[in-house]
Every structure is written in C-alpha cells, then in structure tokens.
C-alpha cells in the first residue's frame, strides 16, 4: 500500500518545473520569469527560433548555468547529482571525449549511469555497423552525432532533454534520429525535444511549448493547437514567429 502511494505521488509529480525562472546574460534577458510544468509520460516540443531561450532553459535544467532568479526543479529537486541520475541529456554540440573509442564510451556510460542499458546500446551500434575500436576523433560529424544519440537514448531515464537533435543533419539521418528517439524512450518518461525544425517532428509530439524572446507564448496539447487553428503546428509556428 505504502509503495503504491509512493508510486502515485511520483506519477503525479511534475517531471520538469520552472517557477519564475529568469536568466540574464549581462544586459540580455534570455528567460523572463518563465513558469512551466511538464508531466511524465509526454513528448514535448520546446519550439522557438534561434535565441528564444530553448538551450538556456535546458542548460539550467542540467545545472550547466545558474538562474539569475526563480527556480527550476527536476522531479521535485534542484539540479544536482540526484536530478542528474534521472536526466539523459543530449547537448547541441560534440561533447564526448575524442580520445575514446566506442567500447570505452560504453564502459564510461555503464560506470556512471546506473540506468544505462548497454545491451540496447550495443544492438543499436551494431545495426549502424560501428567498429568497436574506432576512436571518436577519427569519425565524421554525422557519425559522432549518431553515437551521442544512441548513448543518450540507451539510458532508461525518467527525463530526456534533447537539444536540437535534428539540426544540421541530412534527411536520412533525421529519420534515424527520430526513429531512435521514438523507439527507445521509456513510456513513463518525459521527453523534451528542443528544435525550430517543426515539420519533421510534429507528428510525434504530445505537447508543444512556443518560446519567444524568453517568454512562453503558447503551451498546449498538439491536438488542441491543430484543432483550434485548423492547420498543422509548423504553420502555426510560422505565423507566431513571423518576422
């Protein structure tokens, strides 16, 4: 009974919560008193043009930046070792040690992340035909991005924060990335995908958050947005963010 109660509390607890979250870079206001609550078991599109504050919000959630004011909570806790064990983060850049090969990267993830499913990662890497002893620095940009995605999505995390996972890749790679995300996340997890390339991912989104100059201008279920506007999310995005 106690366990069931605990589980119900966990289910109802927001996975991601911003309370009056504000971030300034000098005179530039990147996020302005943002309030946002995201529940587990959803795939959420964090959508906005470049400079709207998407990456800043994701960095704050990972403790890579400290907010100017307000707070950000991951499963009820401020970013720290506990929240980091729940979050699988894919940054918008190369972040793996270039001197490691594929096998060493698998060992590294197994060493540090208790939720890392090595078997799943090996299967995915096998399907892509990676040489286990090939060093990262000898790989192309596209190949490195695939490895980064496979390692991130092979964690059985509670929250996936994916920052621009489909930016700057060819259409075939884009399909692979979307397939990998959809085919590997845990169903009770929250998946946040930040992007400005809406058309490719809008069919997989449960919710959308439009971020404009540090403010949330829309946060709704995808179905609602489509029904209310009579057009797809990509077209709504273009109208909201028209220059």
């Amino acid at each position: 009974m106690e366990e069931l109660k605990k589980e119900m509390d966990t289910i109802q607890q927001p996975a991601f919560e911003c309370r009056k979250l504000t971030m300034r870079y000098g005179k530039t206001l990147a996020l302005d008193a943002v309030d946002l609550t995201l529940m587990p078991g959803r795939i959420v599109g964090l959508l906005g043009p470049n400079g709207s504050g998407k990456t800043t919000m994701i960095k704050l959630a990972n403790g890579l930046l400290q907010p100017t004011s307000g707070e950000i909570l991951i499963a009820g806790s401020a970013p720290g070792p506990e929240s980091k064990s729940l979050v699988a983060y894919l940054p918008d850049r190369d972040f793996l040690p270039p001197y490691m090969n594929v096998t060493q990267l698998l060992e590294f993830y197994s060493d540090f992340f208790a939720d890392f499913d090595r078997e799943r990662a090996e299967k995915l890497l096998d399907s892509l035909g990676f040489e286990p002893k090939q060093k990262l620095k000898a790989m192309s940009k596209g190949t490195k991005e695939k490895i980064q995605l496979v390692l991130t999505m092979s964690r059985r995390a509670k929250i996936y924060l994916l920052d621009e996972p489909i930016a700057g890749v060819d259409p075939a790679a884009r399909d692979f990335i979307i397939r990998t995300i959809i085919g590997n996340y845990a169903e009770d997890a929250l998946v946040v995908i930040s992007t400005h390339l809406i058309a490719d991912i809008e069919t997989v989104l449960d919710e959308v958050v439009f971020l404009k100059k540090g403010h949330i201008v829309l946060h709704k279920q995808s179905d609602e947005v489509i029904a209310e506007n009579g057009k797809d999310i990509d077209h709504v995005f273009r109208e909201v963010f028209a220059c």
Partner: peptide
C-alpha cells in the same frame, strides 16, 4: 570546455 556537457551532467558532486 565542450566535454563539460558530459562531465557536469554525471551524477557526481
């Protein structure tokens, strides 16, 4: 540096 995106997101203090 760029590897900080991995090392600072490990569950360690």
């Amino acid at each position: 540096g760029s590897r900080g995106y991995l090392m600072n997101t490990l569950p360690v203090t």
